[in-house]
């Protein structure tokens, strides 16, 4: 029986059709998806913090409204993704507990601090740009609810990236000090952005199986290359220098050659030793705890109303 179910699963995946929640699926597929989607959801939720840091200090009402909308989108993306994990049998509260107890990870990029308002622009341009490279292929991932969530996310990320680039263009037209802030932010975020695609292919333990299941459609190194090729002309147009002396066009390959990210730093931050790891998780835990009374009050109100209705 299991063999037959496995054959049907393999056939659906190979035919580029989608696996849906109530279909039979291998346990490993389910586990991998829950881990990946939860990690993705956590990243969206933690990702609210570095930019939320600047909402009260945005330089104009226009920038504040944009930033608020963007941070609200991140919350929305987190919720679309938690909803997708629940179709696999995960429990949202359990995932939140795993995040605030440090048992599940989120993207390491959010463990870096946002030191100036230019960081808001660079996060939109580079961090959201890298996220888009990662996420566009996920719109065709083999698990239906994940693919559908990613379609919604990608539509909204485009606004994120464009507002960031426009913010940077505005600063580059400003004072010398503003241009220096932009360059400084680019210098700090470029390498962590390249690390967002994960370790090199030969060190990525999950890639092969995920590609076979068509959860993942491209390898980490392929996506990283694509991101570099996209970013170089954008940096030129902006008038900033990407901090990589080895970066140059390779006509033979039809791609840019570029340097190697500091993978020791990557693993240090993944393992918890980044500039903001402790702060990010502590803040998430605190806001969850601070919101407990709201959850209790809403539950009590619903119970009271239900009791009134059944008495009437």
């Amino acid at each position: 029986m299991d063999e037959e179910l496995q054959r049907e699963f393999d056939r659906v995946v190979a035919a580029e059709q989608r696996i849906e929640p109530r279909d039979w699926m291998p346990e490993g597929y389910r586990r991998t998806l829950i881990r990946q989607i939860a990690q993705h959801a956590h990243s969206e939720i933690i990702g609210m913090q570095p930019e939320g840091n600047w909402i009260t200090r945005a330089p104009s009402l226009r920038r504040k409204a944009i930033l608020l909308a963007k941070v609200q989108d991140e919350a929305g993306h987190g919720l679309y993704l938690y909803a997708a994990t629940e179709t696999l049998g995960a429990d949202r509260e359990d995932l939140t507990q795993k995040l605030i107890n440090g048992r599940q990870k989120y993207s390491s990029i959010f463990n870096y601090p946002t030191l100036s308002f230019a960081d808001v622009g660079v996060i939109g341009w580079l961090v959201d740009g890298a996220a888009i490279c990662n996420q566009v292929p996920l719109c065709r991932t083999s698990y239906g609810p994940y693919a559908r969530a990613m379609i919604r996310v990608c539509k909204e990320e485009s606004f994120h990236q464009r507002q960031g680039y426009e913010l940077l263009m505005t600063m580059m037209r400003g004072t010398e000090a503003q241009r220096r802030q932009v360059q400084d932010a680019v210098d700090r975020w470029w390498w962590p952005s390249l690390m967002m695609f994960g370790p090199p292919d030969d060190a990525s333990s999950n890639t092969e199986q995920s590609m076979a299941w068509r959860i993942k459609r491209h390898t980490n190194d392929e996506l990283r290359q694509k991101f570099v090729d996209m970013s170089v002309p954008q940096a030129d147009k902006l008038g900033v220098t990407l901090p990589d002396p080895e970066l140059r066009w390779n006509a033979e390959r039809g791609h840019h050659d570029f340097g190697t990210p500091d993978w020791d730093e990557f693993w240090r931050v993944v393992k918890g030793d980044g500039p903001c790891n402790a702060q990010r998780v502590a803040h998430r835990r605190k806001s969850h705890d601070d919101g407990a009374w709201v959850r209790e009050a809403a539950t009590a109100h619903a119970a009271k109303r239900a009791a009134k209705e059944s008495a009437a």
Partner: peptide, 28 residues
């Protein structure tokens, strides 16, 4: 407090514009 998951799950359907069916968009 009770864990939030004790709140029931709802499926959400949205009518994109007049003349179209409501379509399932997700849950909460």
């Amino acid at each position: 407090s009770e864990p939030r998951s004790s709140w029931p799950l709802y499926e959400v359907f949205v009518r994109g514009k007049r003349g179209l069916n409501h379509v399932h968009v997700g849950s909460l």
